[in-house]
Design a protein around this nucleic acid. Structure first.
Length: 825
RNA sequence: GCCGCUGUGGUGGAAUUGGUAGACACGCGGGACUCAAAAUCCCGUGCUAGCAAUAGCGUGUCGGUUCGAGCCCGACCAGCGGUACCA
């Protein structure tokens, strides 16, 4: 018997697929398309690991299934090649990031090819390729022209270790997402994309998407839309200045006890009295120097603040309110100012710490609770009934909110507003290895756009890669590149030395895939419209950053008439991580990374590996790597292989068709039931259970082959079906077996089998017998036996009699085709 | 703190969505083949008692609803992920 040798069989088919361009696709308007890709990888020095394999196997299996269903499937891969790790490696070793990237991509591609993924390699996109980032820069210019890119100086997250600013989305627990060092706030002039203009669309669009609810919730929280009012407070002694305050609780305005401004608030300097100036200045300095990690470590949100010496006037009741500053008020949210009262946890803490008098104006409906609240035993932050609130006393807080806002608005001291937690997307990075921002700074004309015909602004070769030490990247030292002429006036000017956040580059690669070689446009509308949106996008991580940015850009492209779709990713599947056997994260530094190629070359083969990574558990769950489990899927493939070989070697006269109708039907029934199960499971990404069903089928066929000899036409037909449903999971072995079984063409172009409904219906039903809800036995009956008869036979069965003699049956429950339960007393 | 998820044999997990808990697989035990081993094939494998038929117990804990709960409800415990004073 020919042995199953994945080591020679897999490379053979990989070569054939490449030679025949099996997976290369084009636009075919008459066919239904499907676009199935993964979040493209960062080509890190650690190479491909088993986590990637799980991610890619999920999408590849699904894509192969859709191909067999007749869809025109676009599936490819690219590399998210710009970024800090490569640049840091360059600084350490002196090897240029270009070279390191090329080398790493070559390693990745070598590994990927051994996995036999159904990629259209002609569409590969690499973000650090000038032919790619030329268009990233072009998009930057379009955003700028549309007023969606701008430069602004204010406080930003700064990572001292990496010498660069970071976006909000890249600060994790007050630390840099790359080097894990604490970040600080620093005032810098930076480039931003105005993603906040799209906040409502980004929020509403979520409702239509086939995404995990978890991710939608995360995005909603990140966008953080809250509806409220901006209230205007006059300042005593400063007739020409007012303080605007954002609140979602206008109903509590009568309880206002104080005002707090963020330390960086523009009015602080103006309103601070002589006596308070020293304290205020000192506080501002201290709070600016603190990083978030420090602040959190300082203990549980202990409130700090300093009185400015000035007072504001409550527009509702003309009361005088002391104006403080405090760093628990954020400069970047709302108006950077709040009014404080007893109906808020933080304000309550502040009141207590500084002994500011406060008044309760909202009490709960419960009388006893109300007494405690009025006694200020604790802070009440819920909805309730207004007291001591002028003409609004007695109203419910939800109602009073709108009425008070309207009342103040009529007096000119309020307006309804909406606020978002999400800030604009900070995209400048003071690092070398990124797409240069296509701007020229001219002493006369200011920030001037690089003309589109001069794109790309290519990264110049430089001697060394470390940041310049003055807040600029290594590009500041590339003098020939840096010094240029102003496109407006022709005078001497300097190029922008910041590069773009890598997330900019990854915000449109799925569009480049649809038209990867276009050197006239980023992508042609016709091609993008044919393929977009991505039907299934598979990956882990990036719940708020990438997935939000890519949606933003897609919406922008639509607004620019470059594209028809509003949303880039119709379906998102979030796969779980593969962890080390002890549950820790796999990492190069811990030395616990499992290299998939090692497993393939040990003899397991790519098919067994892919199968195992899908079989290991539900696709979206984190799983600890178990190094022995892969034996199971290898054995399964071996059994499929051996079954087919035995069939092919069987003498035809041993297994003439028609010898045993019942057994032949049994084979077909087993196969068709599995086709049904696997189809249903694939549709819902139930890969693990689909594989289990295939294993059950093969076990059953092993039992049947001892009774119905292999070699017959019936076996041939059914084994071909088995191979067809195994194909998306184990593409190589099934291609080989398909050929051996005289299948036409490639199994990956073969049609996905449909099950015969008459074969799937059961002729027999198993009725479970229960007494008082406890299972006591079962009986097998023909499926068409009527209810009364089933009940009677059940009642007469030994199992039921044993537990009911001497007792009376008070009730009989029948679940058709499944179960009879006797309630006895 | 807030939001979300998860908890089932020695292990990874399954369970038609309220109807036989533990499919499938790993591991382990036994057998066949072999001089022997590997590979392969077959049988067994939740716990307790029993030769067995069978009985009792069993899905993180406690309670509830129901003829019947891994699944629904309430309270709690543990672990994981997200978020970080957002007014």
């Amino acid at each position: 018997m020919k042995r199953y040798e994945p080591k020679q069989l897999e490379p053979k088919w990989q070569q054939i697929w490449e030679d025949t361009k099996l997976y290369e696709v084009g636009e075919e308007p008459s066919r239904q398309k499907a676009y199935v890709i993964d979040m493209f990888p960062y080509p890190s020095g650690a190479g491909l690991h088993v986590g990637h394999v799980r991610n890619f196997s999920i999408s590849d299996t699904y894509a192969l299934y859709l191909r067999q269903k007749g869809k025109n499937v676009l599936r490819t891969i690219g590399f998210d090649a710009f970024g800090l790790p490569t640049e840091n490696y360059a600084i350490k070793t002196g090897i240029s990031p270009q070279e390191a990237t090329d080398r790493q991509i070559a390693v990745f591609k070598g590994q990927l090819k051994k996995l036999g993924m159904s990629y259209d390699w002609s569409r590969e996109a690499v973000t650090s390729d000038p032919g790619y980032y030329r268009w990233t820069q072009w998009i930057f210019l379009q955003l700028l022209k549309s007023g969606l890119a701008y430069q602004k100086e204010n406080l930003q997250w700064w990572c001292e270790h990496d010498q660069t600013v970071l976006a909000d989305e890249q600060v994790v627990n007050g630390r840099c997402w790359r080097c894990d060092n604490p970040v600080i706030k620093k005032s810098l002039k930076q480039w931003f994309f105005k993603i906040t203009d799209y906040a409502d669309r980004l929020l509403e669009g979520l409702n239509e998407l086939d995404w995990p609810e978890k991710i939608k919730i995360q995005q909603r929280n990140w966008i953080g839309r809250s509806v409220g009012a901006e209230l205007r407070f006059e300042i005593e002694g400063h007739a020409d200045e007012q303080i605007d305050v954002f609140t979602t609780r206008a109903d509590t305005i009568f309880s206002a006890a104080f005002i707090v401004l963020a330390p960086e608030h523009a009015l602080v300097e103006k309103i601070t009295t002589q006596a308070q100036q020293k304290d205020i200045a000192q506080y501002i300095e201290e709070s600016a120097g603190k990083d978030d990690v420090e602040r959190l470590a300082e203990g549980d949100k202990e409130k700090t603040g300093v009185f400015t010496g000035s007072y504001a006037i409550n527009p509702a009741n003309e009361e005088k309110l002391p104006i403080w500053i405090g760093d628990f008020v954020l400069g970047g949210y709302g108006t950077g100012a709040v009014f404080g009262d007893i109906h808020d946890e933080r304000d309550f803490a502040f009141l207590n710490k500084f002994d500011i008098p406060a008044r309760v104006t909202v009490i709960p409906e419960d009388k006893d609770e109300a007494v405690k609240v009025q006694a200020k035993e604790y802070t009440y932050t819920g909805e309730g009934i207004l007291i001591d609130s002028g003409e609004f006393t007695g109203l419910r807080s939800e109602v009073a909110r709108d009425q008070i806002t309207a009342w103040l608005a009529a007096k000119g001291s309020a307006k309804e507003t909406v606020n978002y937690k999400m800030r604009d997307w900070l995209i400048s990075r003071q690092r070398y290895w990124g797409a240069p921002i296509p701007i020229i700074h001219c002493p006369k004309d200011g920030a001037v756009l690089v003309p589109e015909d001069q794109l790309p602004v290519e990264l110049p070769k430089v001697e060394s890669y470390q940041p310049n030490g003055d807040g600029r990247s290594a590009l500041a030292r590339a003098k020939d590149w840096l010094h240029t002429t102003c496109p407006e006036c022709g005078g001497p000017a300097e190029r922008e030395t910041d590069t773009m956040d890598g997330y900019a580059c990854s915000s449109w690669y799925f569009l480049r895939y649809t038209d990867p070689h276009n050197d006239k446009e980023a992508f042609s509308r016709a091609k993008a419209d044919y393929w977009m949106p991505v039907d299934i996008y598979v990956g882990a991580d990036h719940a708020v950053a990438h997935l939000l940015y890519a949606r933003f850009w897609t919406m922008f492209f639509r607004d620019q008439d470059l594209l028809t779709v509003e949303e880039p990713f119709r379906g998102l599947r979030y796969n779980g991580y593969i962890l080390a056997p002890d549950g820790s994260k796999m990492s190069k530094s811990k030395g616990n990374v499992v290299d998939p190629v090692d497993l393939i070359e040990e003899g397991y083969g790519a098919d067994a590996l892919r199968l195992y990574e899908l079989f290991i558990g539900p696709y979206d769950q984190n799983i600890n790597w178990n190094p022995t489990g892969i034996d199971g899927t290898k054995r399964f493939l071996n059994r499929v292989w051996a079954l087919v070989q035995e069939h092919l070697e069987a003498k035809p006269d041993q297994g003439n068709t028609g010898t045993d109708q019942a057994l032949e039907t049994a084979v077909a029934v087993a196969v068709h039931k599995t086709i049904k199960k696997v189809t249903v499971d694939l549709e819902k990404f139930g890969f693990n259970t689909a594989i289990a069903a295939q294993m059950e089928l093969v076990n059953e066929l092993y039992r049947l082959k001892t009774k119905l000899p292999l070699g017959s036409e019936v076996w041939q037909k059914n084994l071909r079906l088995v191979v067809a449903i195994v194909a998306p999971f184990a593409p190589h072995i099934s291609e080989e077996l398909w050929e051996q079984l005289d299948g036409k063409g490639s199994v990956h172009e073969a049609s996905w089998p449909t099950f015969d409904p008459t074969l799937v219906e059961d002729a027999l039903m198993t009725i479970v017998l229960q007494v008082n809800g406890k299972t006591r036995g079962q009986i097998e009956l023909n499926s068409d036996v009527a209810e009364d008869e089933v009940k009677q036979m059940a009642a007469e069965s030994d199992a039921v009699k044993r537990h009911s003699t001497g007792l009376t049956i008070v009730k009989t429950i029948y679940i058709p085709g499944k179960l009879v339960n006797f309630v006895v007393k």
